[in-house]
Design a protein around this nucleic acid. Structure first.
Length: 566
DNA sequence: GCCGTTTTCGGCCCGACTGTTTTCAGTCG
């Protein structure tokens, strides 16, 4: 079997929890597996250490779960999951990906003979769902929408998943010059297949990947292999050094860009394929993509700019070496701590920020309306400010902030005099996602125009592959940000990536952005790489990203922003 | 199932919203 990862450990725990809920077991038992998964996500220890210490000291992982997880690492079988799964048809588990369906409703559907996303879609259409007890016409319609979303999403992975797998494969292929290709290589927010290119032959790739990928098979057309890692489809394309440039270009994509390049090549009497660049059937050596472009007399687009949205636009965008990088980010803003729903102290988060090479941390815990997230009352916020001042006195570079809930009417969850005590303010929506579009737009415009709001947090509320953003007039909200000088967040959490790069691309030059991790654990502070991928696809330079400023410059920026609104 | 103990078992986050009901169950953040 493939090696256990943090993701495979937390995956079996979460799936077990879902199944126990579905089987009607005591809710707290399922919750225990979920808590254990969350705890494993939050711990900083690597998987090897966790296993060798038998999970000693990991909160929420007791004797039973620790023993079962160790057995899973050895045998690939997690006993509680096997037990539960044997009682449930495999397709039923997929129903947990449908928004609005929980264990009780899924159980009701299963009892009615609906046991997969496909059969659920049919049952929504033919009226069976609407006629079930506890369901109705409105439920059936919203479930159908959610099923279509889930079916479309199931073939794709988050950028973080794709890059994790890509890097694991690259490690196994070291020496063959592995290159992250395909959607993830271009920094796209989601990817269908994880693709790599290497210099070498298929037999060597196959030998290297034994034990890393499963179900490895040679391609039928051309040199390469396909297989799966953690259930995710992977493809490795390979070839000799003299065709590597063509290989990279073709497998990097996008499809429309490659087809355009192939058409340009044909117009010049060449044939461009993954097997190389040929003229009159004779191979033209092209070790790099730049060589291909030079032979064809074309400019080579940076991989970031190869989507259809960049057509006719990319030449006016900054060159790749001018785009913002993770190293350019000085401050990590909008972060959580144990004060609300984070898993680490402010001090631990700040230390990790410095270890990653950034220069300051901005606190950003939840405000009082966020009960579920242990949001801070005004009294607790002031106590937190006192702690921050002590940490600052001890030499930690911090700025104070909060992620303040935008209330029903667009007002904020703390009064102005409290907001004014903070160095910066992120305003975010965490409630009333289904407000009618006109009211939602009005609500967000009001919040974005508030004189003390520094940054509008995760502006659309989307969760990639899970739910679309709230219905509203996004351009009207972004125009309000432009008018009031409010910074727009690029939430770097790989499950959000909100604002979407396509909107950032459209609004670049008119807005200032912040690349924020929204980290709840120290490891989450490294999510900057995903937010930076968004910014690069949108052509952003460091000057357009507010948290490339050093601490004092950032504080001065906020002062100017506030002064301009008086 | 985990935790913290009154060391043997009770408590584990909860308010708001939605669509279904006919007073509330289920889901979400």
């Amino acid at each position: 079997m493939a090696e256990v990862t943090r993701k495979s450990l937390t995956g079996v725990l979460k799936t077990t929890a879902d199944l126990l809920d579905l089987l009607g077991q005591e809710a707290f038992r399922a919750q225990a597996y979920r808590s254990a998964a969350r705890s494993l996500e939050a711990t900083d220890s690597d998987v090897a250490d966790l296993l060798s210490s038998a999970f000693a000291g990991v909160p929420k992982v007791g004797k039973t779960i620790a023993t079962d997880l160790l057995a899973f690492a050895g045998t690939g079988t997690f006993a509680p999951l096997e037990d539960a799964a044997s009682q449930v048809p495999p397709g039923v588990l997929g129903l947990f990906r449908v928004r609005g369906l929980g264990p009780k409703k899924i159980r009701a559907l299963w009892d009615a003979g609906i046991d997969s996303l496909e059969t659920l879609r049919e049952a929504c259409r033919d009226g069976r769902v609407a006629s079930l007890k506890g369901f109705g016409a409105k439920s059936a319609a919203s479930i159908l929408d959610a099923v279509d979303f889930a079916l479309a999403a199931q073939a794709r992975q988050h950028l973080s998943t794709s890059l994790d797998i890509s890097e694991a494969l690259a490690g196994a292929l070291s020496g063959l010059d592995p290159h992250s290709s395909g959607d993830a290589g271009r920094g796209l927010d989601t990817a269908d297949t994880v693709r790599l290119t290497v210099t070498g032959c298929a037999a060597e790739v196959q030998a290297r990947l034994a034990g890393v990928a499963e179900a490895l098979d040679a391609w039928e057309d051309g040199p390469g292999l396909k297989g799966r890692v953690d259930g995710v489809p992977v493809e490795v394309a390979c070839g000799p050094a003299e065709t590597r440039g063509a290989l990279d270009l073709v497998y990097d994509g996008s499809l429309s860009y490659v087809q355009a390049m192939q058409a340009e090549a044909a117009a010049r009497g060449f044939e461009l394929t993954g097997q190389g660049l040929r003229r009159g059937g004779v191979l033209v050596p092209t070790p790099t993509g730049a060589d291909v472009a030079r032979e064809l007399g074309l400019a080579l687009r940076p991989p970031e700019y190869r989507e259809p949205e960049h057509d006719g636009l990319w030449e006016a965008l900054p060159a790749a070496d001018e785009l913002v990088t993770v190293q350019d980010l000085r401050g990590l803003l909008h972060t959580h701590s144990v004060w609300s729903d984070g898993a680490a102290t402010i001090e631990e988060m700040a230390q990790q920020t410095l270890r990653l090479g950034h220069s300051f941390l901005g606190t950003g815990d939840h405000s009082r309306a966020a009960h579920y997230a242990n949001g801070l009352s005004i009294e607790r916020l002031r106590a937190q400010l006192k702690e921050v001042r002590e940490l600052q006195a001890a030499g930690l570079p911090l700025v104070t902030g909060a992620e303040v809930d935008i209330l029903d009417d667009g007002s904020l969850d703390y009064p102005d005099d409290v907001l004014a005590e903070l160095d910066y303010v992120v305003a975010s929506v965490h409630s009333l996602f289904t407000l009618d579009p006109a009211r939602q737009t009005e609500r967000l415009i009001r919040a974005a125009s508030h004189p003390l709001v520094t940054i509008l947090g995760h502006p659309t509320g989307r969760l990639l592959l899970r739910r679309p953003g709230y219905a509203m007039d996004l351009d009207a909200v972004l125009a309000a940000c432009e008018a009031s000088g409010t910074v727009v967040e690029i939430n770097a959490n790989a499950y959000r990536l909100d604002l979407d790069w396509r909107h950032v691309l459209r609004w670049r030059g008119r807005l200032t952005f912040a690349i924020n991790t929204d980290a709840h654990v120290p490891a989450g502070l490294a999510d900057t790489r995903y937010g930076v991928a968004v910014a690069r696809k949108a052509g952003l330079t460091p000057a357009q990203v507010v948290n490339t400023l050093e601490r004092e410059e950032f504080l001065a920026f906020v002062s100017r922003q506030r002064a301009a609104r008086l």
